[in-house]
Design a binder for these strands. Structure first.
Length: 768
DNA sequence: TCAGCTCACACTTTTGAATAGC
DNA sequence: AGCTATTCAAAAGTGTGAGCTG
């Protein structure tokens, strides 16, 4: 079975610094001023030598310019309607789909190249919310960040022609609040605000990622997770817009009136039954329908009661179809122009900057780690760090500040996470949105952020224009990634690989596992127990945060517990071959396939991550953070800590002045060269998270890259400092690796336990 | 006491297998 | 035999509300 490890580039691919820039092809007016794609920034921040890609053999001359990639939120109007009120997303233990779903149109892709589309959801801020006074208000700090999971679109990988020829829907993605979820659903905290992100990653073949990644964020898709709807307006919108909830519409059979009527009838029937049973049979006989009474020969009360109970409920005059019922659109809240102020956009960027990566927790406690990362990142690229507004003294609430200013969800200043006692006024979504130029403009459908970014040295483009099996690519085609050999389908899975029960080995169980390293809990996450362990450990390790959350940690010592959880998480939606998203932070000894990262030769060199990062070494103040368990992030931070230690305090991107352009009507913001962005020219602190997840950071992980790191940089033996999405294809112990990628994927789908697991049909549909 | 969560429920849509027809 | 269209049952997606939990 293919695993994500088959895509070493995704996690480790080298990034060409020159390709890492934020482009604005439509002029400054359309340029989102907030921090550019996290990955780009991160990559930029990295020492160029680290980012310097190895020579790319046979670089395709016809490569499509990355700046042309655009993404449009097809159902933006619906999202805006919800956003106007304050979008709420139900999360359940078993997983709940998002509604509205993310329906996208992408353009600008190279029709002949293959791409993988990912969805991840990152915390929008550092606060926990409560619905009070008719609005949402931050009431405290966010809970420990959970392992980040990525939903890989079932069609992935597919050619650019494929993606561009249809609407791309992520409606199969499910959200859960079950930290022990083993279904691969995206785990979120209830009553927290989140921001979905879409990533387009080029995949040349199964063994190596292609050259580019583009990330898109649509501000109007932010939402607050709930276990039960708080705002009745949202409920109304959902019922009216979601086909599955049709029954709850006024004309539906499950409407309030109908339900009341049913309840009434039920009670009536029960009462009558009781009367029949308890009363004189003679009296009850009158209640019985004629047929029954006439056919009843024995006339026993039991029979009567039974017959009565079995009668269909009488029509309730109070209920019934109401033709006059307003249609969905009629009942919709007046659609307001979503107008995201610059501040909002900036906050969005900052939010975006929150890395999927994760492990780095967005919570106050993670601040320290983030700060560390920021510093580390900035070392290589002063320009990035300098441009961000100075971080507020209280960095613990970093998201808050930005959000409070502009975010539609946080019209009110987000209270300091540490200051839970000071609830903010309810957020007035409509007002916020109305004041948000970005959303008010047609560009609302445009992602607030477009990460057009780095280009991995890539082999010649595949000739196949259709979703070809990535494996079809000749491993020898590109010598850039050393990994191919390591992860070659023919490569026998080592002991460590076999260990992971489900994810990589069995196609049945196989689910794509994706989780950012940072998000990765310290515990071992075997496919079966993957998440659970990690979270549990993380929780256990939670330490008082308040004391340190506000202060960036000057130094973060990263330690990886020897018992580190498996780094892979199952993705129900992912094809078996992609099922394992492994976490680089896992020690090789963990026996997880992820441990053996092809491109992480240095890992192999290192006996165990634990050794490299002694658990005890995590002495940094961050250890007191609520999220100590997230070793990955800490590790990442540690990798840079030395180099970053000398750096000045970092500011949060969200604090940046609003640079977003509301005017753009284009589906995506034109790429802008990062250097052109003022923010990046400054020493503004870079948000660590931005770096953490982005593949652009992967280059440094690539052993093939020249080790130009300053002496301060962590030795290669250390675990990769930048946990990007650990999209790793597990080594396939089976010959199935030779099968076309897509074929495997479909097999997986069929074998998938989820009803939605089969994407076979979906892959061929024009619209999902 | 209460906010938040879980679960069962009824209804609906979606999915896929079975069947019929060509 | 192969393909398409139709039917039908099962599965899954909804919000609701009662009950539970801390």
């Amino acid at each position: 079975m293919l695993s994500v490890e088959m895509y070493p580039s995704l996690t480790l691919g080298p990034q060409r610094i020159g390709d890492c820039f934020y482009r604005d092809r439509q002029g400054p007016a359309h340029m989102p001023m907030y921090p550019p794609p996290t990955c780009d920034v991160a990559a930029k921040a990295l020492p160029q030598r680290l980012l310097a890609p190895p020579p790319v053999p046979n670089e395709p001359a016809t490569k499509t310019p990355k700046d042309d990639v655009r993404m449009e939120l097809e159902n933006a109007s619906l999202w805006k309607q919800f956003s106007t009120v304050g979008t709420e997303m139900i999360i359940t233990k078993k997983g709940r789909r998002m509604f509205p779903g993310l329906r996208l149109k992408v353009s600008g892709l190279n029709p002949s190249l293959r791409y993988i589309l990912l969805l991840d959801i990152i915390p929008a801020d550092n606060s926990r919310y409560r619905f009070q006074g008719g609005g949402w208000q931050a009431v405290g700090g966010a809970e420990a960040r959970l392992p980040d999971r990525v939903f890989i679109h079932p069609d992935s990988p597919a050619t650019g022609a494929h993606w561009q020829s249809r609407t791309i829907s992520f409606h199969y993605a499910k959200l859960t609040n079950n930290t022990l979820d083993t279904q691969g659903h995206i785990i979120l905290h209830s009553l927290h605000r989140y921001q979905p992100r879409i990533h387009v990653i080029e995949a040349r073949d199964v063994l190596r990622w292609g050259g580019g990644q583009h990330s898109f964020v649509f501000p109007e898709t932010q939402f607050i997770t709930v276990t039960a709807y708080q705002n009745s307006k949202i409920t109304e919108l959902k019922i009216n817009a979601n086909p599955f909830a049709k029954g709850f519409r006024e004309e539906g059979m499950n409407s309030k009136k109908q339900r009341d009527a049913r309840q009434k009838r039920k009670m009536s029937t029960l009462t009558e039954t009781l009367d029949i049973v308890n009363c004189d049979p003679c009296d009850s006989a009158e209640l019985l329908p004629q047929p029954i009474t006439t056919t009843t020969t024995t006339d026993t009360t039991d029979l009567q009661a039974l017959a009565l109970a079995s009668l269909p409920p009488l029509p309730d005059p109070t209920c019934g179809y109401r033709p006059e019922e307003a249609s969905y659109h009629d009942t919709l809240v007046p659609e307001q122009q979503l107008d995201l102020g610059q501040a909002f956009m900036a906050s969005q960027m900052s939010d975006i900057s929150i890395s999927m990566a994760n492990g780095m927790q967005s919570t106050p406690g993670s601040e320290v780690a983030n700060s560390m990362i920021e510093r580390s990142v900035t070392i290589g690229e002063p320009a990035y760090t300098s441009t961000f507004p100075t971080a507020q003294p209280d960095s613990s609430s970093f998201p808050s500040a930005a959000l409070s200013q502009s975010s539609p969800f946080s019209s009110l200043p987000v209270p300091n996470s540490s200051d839970a006692s000071n609830p903010q006024p309810p957020i007035d979504y409509p007002a916020i949105l109305a004041s948000s130029p970005a959303l008010s403009s047609p560009s609302s459908t445009t992602p607030s952020l477009q990460q057009t970014s780095f280009t991995f040295p890539t082999p010649p483009p595949s000739n196949s224009s259709s979703p070809q099996p990535l494996l079809s690519s000749s491993p020898s085609a590109n010598t850039y990634h050393p990994i191919p050999e390591i992860i070659s389908p023919h490569t026998p899975a080592d002991a460590s690989f076999s260990a992971p029960p489900s994810t990589c080995q069995s196609g049945l169980q196989g689910q794509i596992l994706a989780q950012s390293l940072l998000a990765q809990p310290s515990g071992n996450n075997a496919p079966g127990d993957q998440n659970s362990a990690a979270f549990i450990d993380s929780n256990i390790l939670l330490a008082p945060v308040a004391a340190h959350q506000n202060q960036p940690a000057p130094i973060m010592h990263c330690s990886l517990p020897s018992h580190a959880a498996p780094t892979s998480f199952a993705f129900a939606s992912v094809p078996p071959h992609m099922q394992n998203l492994s976490f680089p932070n896992v020690p090789p000894s963990s026996a997880h396939p992820a441990l053996h990262l092809p491109n992480l030769s240095h890992q192999a060199q290192t006996p165990t991550l634990a050794a490299a990062f002694p658990h005890s070494s995590f002495t940094h103040p961050s250890s007191s953070l609520p999220h100590p368990p997230f070793q990955p992030s800490s590790c990442l931070a540690s990798s840079f800590q030395q180099s970053a230690s000398s750096l000045p305090p970092t500011a949060h991107p969200q604090n940046m002045p609003n640079h977003s352009t509301s005017s753009s009507t284009s589906s995506s913001y034109p790429p802008v060269e990062i250097g052109a962005i003022p923010q990046f020219n400054h020493n503004a602190p870079y948000r660590p998270e931005m770096v953490l997840h982005h593949p652009s950071l992967l280059p440094q992980l690539d052993p093939s890259l020249p080790s130009n790191l300053p002496t301060s940089n962590p030795p290669q033996t250390l675990y990769p400092a930048f946990p990007s999405y650990p999209l790793r294809l597990c080594q396939d112990p089976h010959p199935s690796l030779s099968l076309p990628f897509r074929h495997l994927y479909r097999q997986h789908q069929h074998g998938h336990a989820h009803p939605q697991g089969s994407y076979l049909d979906m892959s061929t549909r024009a619209v999902f």
